[in-house]
Design a protein around this nucleic acid. Structure first.
Lengths: 182, 182, 182, 182
DNA sequence: GATGAATGAGACTTCATTCAT
DNA sequence: CATGAATGAAGTCTCATTCAT
């Protein structure tokens, strides 16, 4: 594991990418063979990297959480107040359809996925960050007081599960409007 | 079809009921055998009534649309203005988790389901009714002008796909808030 | 399970028969599909009766132990002394190649098989019977004192694992000679 | 083939050693990767030395026959009469669990193995030697007249296939007793 | 007409073998 | 030359659908 061969690394990345997209568009039961084909590798390669479906899901989850965390940092730097950072963040999130968190707590995920420590830690770090953003936005008086992390994550995950080709933008607009305090 | 025996009718109803619930809680891929068992009949009986999975989905869809239509009528009668009728309707809809419309246009449904004329007609009738309600609510000045039937149905279907045990109430609250015009 | 359909019962018996023979001639890893074909049924049928390979092994084991027990009773009735009953029993046993006990204590069997209570009980009953036979034969002064059930069962299982077409008769002869006390 | 590098030779020996042990303890279907790991080399190296599983089996077979031949010579030199040499030989053979001859005639071996001329020759040389030993033991009046090479080899191979941890000693004792003429 | 047994296509996973590094 | 990554054929098991009872 020290030094992974260049092609192996590339394959791994392609697999995770393909899986992330297929998990969203076709669900977490997408045949492994389809994932392999989409990644441009054979099934065997997929199974060498990820001994079973769960470990693939975990890898995708870590990838997703990592990206969400990055995006969150970027949004805060780009905006001066928390409310606008939140809006920007949610819009970007929706745009790239980063899902697979399932109501932010991995409900509905296989036990092995829920038990994974690394993934849990990554998710917690991200959650702390988002929590802070929400708190700040409430302090600013812009965000409803009764809304929490779980509500936001749940909504975003629902949004992302929409059929591709749908137009989530308006829905998100309405929701952000609803998030604004009275 | 003229005269269906009483027990046959009862069987049919039990199957549709069981399927509606299982399609929501366990997804539209729920094994036919599980549906049959939940309905208290054998698989053979299920297949006698519904030659394949698609025709069962269609039957459930008609059932659902029928119920939604009834509920809509009831909501309008119970409330004096369209805005409150809308709110009441959405809350009731969420409560009984009547889904299976998949963003109101049956995206993601098997071709045979999308092609079914009877279901299309029933759905259109219901859509007309909901459209009218939305129009009235806009006329009242209570509903945002840019929101249409598809947005509402899409959101409701997403909501219904949430994990059972989730708390969609707050999400719906926020959304209804967002639906209110400025 | 109360009343099993006639054809289902027949199928079950054919499967166990086919499996018993194939487990001996081609090993316990024989593809399930080959077993199904040899039994004249589809794989699905095989899996309906026996949810996995282990449960099939267990069923075959019970069948085998049952037959061994019957044969042992018959041998004792047919012969007046224990020594000759033993010889007759071992020869008949070898002839029909009833194996799958794997050194009499199911060493080398999958955990699920070793854990099965019914099979363990049946095997213990048979073992008691054979033990008694060995004890009687020792009392008669015909059997070596240092030979026990495990030795005999181990040898028989080895013998049965021989390639079909081999001639185990002479080996058994030599062994029986060796079993005679000095 | 003329000059093989020292490390290549060492690798080859390690592979054959590892394979011999694994073929006995885990059967001739042991994954090639496991054999490679046990030998401390990569699969690629294994396949460079032995283009396929069959050629590895052949190499192990030659190794085993070579050892058996050596042991046989040693036993004859150590004992003055053939009967005791036989007993010593069989006991030593059992102790080191040199198998893979499969009833001495390679029944059950892949065609390519059975067709190998070198292996056949080595096995024949060994067989001649053992045959001679048996003949001498019969001449001495110690060994049953009806026992031949195949019987002995078959028995030894069965014995060696016993679960590791079993106690083949008593079985061998009984068998040697049975081998003694009347 | 109802039942549940049988079928076989298809998904998951492993491993012998090839080939890029 | 050694390595271990990639491949795909083969085996296990599930489930939609058909059909005998």
């Amino acid at each position: 594991m020290k030094t992974m061969r260049a092609d192996a690394l590339r394959n791994r990345a392609q697999i995770v990418d393909a899986a992330r997209i297929l998990f969203i568009t076709r669900g977490p039961d997408t045949p492994m063979e389809d994932i392999a084909r989409a990644a441009g590798v054979g099934v065997g390669t997929l199974y060498r990297r990820f001994p079973d479906r769960d470990s693939l899901i975990i890898a995708v989850g870590q990838d997703v959480v990592g990206r969400l965390t990055e995006m969150l940092h970027a949004a805060r730097e780009a905006e001066s107040d928390a409310w606008h950072a939140l809006g920007r963040y949610l819009r970007e999130w929706a745009e790239i359809r980063l899902g697979l968190l399932y109501d932010a707590l991995c409900h509905g995920m296989p036990p092995a996925v829920r038990a994974d420590q690394d993934l849990a830690r990554a998710r917690d770090d991200w959650a702390d960050l988002l929590d802070e953003l929400l708190r700040d936005a409430k302090t600013e008086g812009a965000l409803r007081q009764d809304v929490d992390l779980v509500d936001v994550a749940t909504f975003m995950n629902l949004l992302i599960q929409m059929e591709p080709g749908g137009t989530p933008d308006k829905l998100l607009d309405v929701m952000i409007d609803g998030l604004r305090g009275p």
